[in-house]
Design a protein around this nucleic acid. Structure first.
Length: 376
RNA sequence: GUGGGUGUAGCUCAGGGGCAGAGCACUUGAUUGUGGUUCAAGUGGCCGGGGGUUCAAAUCCCCUCACCCACC
């Protein structure tokens, strides 16, 4: 059975809708998964998340392996049960930590050595280990270990990282196959920095492995938007329709809309929750920094067009007060709103594509969204 | 009442003849496969008040006010 089924292909952009099937149910695309690195979408309960209608979660194998450890999660019945959620969980491998924790690791062909950011312990992870970790977590979608490097990168370095990512992907697939008929899905990651030949080579090699979806990695790590979208568009032109296309770790609302118009189906990003923690709210008129003094006695909700719990019950003035006072409820209410708002955005995107109206939707959305903030 | 100490940014304080300072707070940014972090920039001053010495005083001298401590 095919995992990803294309439903609508828009005529005037490369945007498309589809259904992605997992053992925990179907995911309508374009989809957005909030990030739950440590097994929690920070600040939100599983009840709130299902109320919002979140379709799934991104957790992190590296982080959960370090803490609380695999034994604990296995004993608790796997990550989904541990977290109390019933939607699919995708686990990132630790490849991004090769980039974000660059000072703490050494990469070699065999695998990567990390010094734990928690206690300094040395940990050596191979691509095979990373699969074993995800099996122990019993997540629904596995992501192979890859080498994510920052941009701009010189060609030689990018080529080395791409070759390593390809070699690791092959080992990952071999190891995955040896486990028998797992219901868990396995994605492949395309690296290659901003070099088209490397991207193409990586995509061809990953395609040979018959993975369940294509992760687009190594973007939004220092390159300009122009180069980013250029590289992205090149990839979505090359990728076969049967693959779900996942832009890892992206993006702001305007970024998501742009990427969807270039043919991306799937996103995760820390932005709705991290921005909530630092006091930025998303609205149909753009971002507002709720801690700004202009909201000190603003009785309006965060977004008057939003029907989430936070917007129906609380004023900007109250949420600003909570955030500025460092109260956790402020973070909770804003996280709830931001995740709800992102989820609504994805629904609107899918609807616009279904109605073959995405180009107009994109244009209208951006005009309205730029009203309050400067979107480049 | 006597003796001693302290008065400098909203707060806690450094500076002791030569451009008025720091941390926190506040104000504004940044943050894209997450360390509620971190980073960057900015606003803010009768240096308790008055007088004197000096080319020059937050700084030295005199007076005064406020607060704190000790002793009558």
């Amino acid at each position: 059975m095919r995992v990803f089924k294309l439903l609508n292909q828009s005529k005037d952009t490369k945007a498309r809708t589809g259904v992605f099937s997992t053992r925990k149910g179907k995911v309508l695309t374009p989809a957005f998964f909030p990030v739950a690195t440590q097994g929690t979408v920070k600040g939100l309960t599983s009840r709130q998340l299902s109320e919002i209608g979140v379709q799934g979660y991104l957790a992190n194998a590296y982080h959960l392996y370090l803490r609380p450890g695999l034994e604990v999660i296995k004993k608790m019945g796997g990550l989904g049960k541990f977290m109390g959620v019933d939607k699919p969980i995708l686990t990132d491998s630790g490849g991004y930590q090769i980039f974000s924790l660059a000072r703490l690791r050494k990469v070699e062909d065999k695998g990567v050595e990390f010094r734990s950011h928690l206690d300094g312990n040395k940990i050596f992870l191979t691509p095979e280990d990373v699969i074993d970790i995800q099996i122990a977590l019993d997540s629904d979608i596995f992501v192979p270990l890859d080498e994510c490097i920052k941009n701009p990168a010189d060609y030689k370095k990018a080529e080395e990282a791409t070759n390593r990512t390809i070699a690791w992907a092959k080992r990952t697939k071999d190891h995955f196959k040896k486990q028998g008929n797992l219901e868990n899905l396995l994605f492949g990651i395309v690296q290659g920095s901003t070099y088209k030949d490397l991207r193409q080579k990586c995509l061809v090699e990953i395609d040979k492995l018959e993975v369940d979806g294509l992760c687009i990695g190594g973007l939004s790590v220092g390159e300009s938007k122009e180069i980013r979208y250029n590289t992205l568009s090149y990839l979505t032109d090359l990728a076969k329709d049967k693959y779900l296309r996942y832009f890892m770790g992206y993006g702001k609302p305007e970024d998501i809309i742009e990427a969807v118009s270039l043919g991306v189906d799937f996103f995760d990003c820390v932005i709705p929750t991290r921005y909530a923690r630092t006091g930025t709210a998303f609205t149909n008129q753009g971002e507002i920094v709720i801690r700004n003094s202009s909201f000190i006695s603003d009785s309006a909700p965060i977004d008057s067009e939003c029907s989430c719990y936070s917007c129906k019950n609380f004023s900007r003035a109250y949420i600003r007060h909570l955030i500025n006072a460092g109260e956790m409820l402020g973070i909770q209410l804003l996280s709830y709103h931001n995740v709800y708002w992102y989820n609504s955005l994805m629904k609107k995107i899918r609807k616009a594509i279904e109605e073959n109206n995405f180009a107009k939707f994109k244009k209208d959305f951006l005009i309205e969204y730029k009203r309050n903030n400067l979107v480049s």
